[in-house]
């Protein structure tokens, strides 16, 4: 089983959380899970919209102490 890799995109306006996630997803292997950390509340909607369109898999999404933890699995 692949380990979960953390993508720390807290407090970033540019390049921003989704752009950071896309960068790391491009380099990840199929089956890898990435956990995106974000303090931007928009991320909770932005990430699933991209993940669903591109065809990866949303694993989980939860807010812990003002930080969103969003897990995504690369499927292709």
């Amino acid at each position: 089983m692949s380990e979960t890799k953390i993508v720390d995109a807290r407090n970033t306006f540019c390049p921003g959380p989704l752009m950071e996630l896309i960068q790391y997803m491009k380099r990840a292997e199929v089956g890898d899970t990435l956990e995106l950390l974000s303090t931007d509340n928009g991320t909770v909607n932005d990430v699933p919209e991209w993940v669903n369109k591109v065809g990866h898999e949303m694993v989980s999404s939860e807010k812990i102490e003002e930080v969103w933890h969003i897990k995504v699995r690369k499927t292709k």
Partner: peptide, 10 residues
Amino acid sequence: YPINRIHTIE
């Protein structure tokens, strides 16, 4: 553009 608005800075 890669994300769901036309620039990453809102």
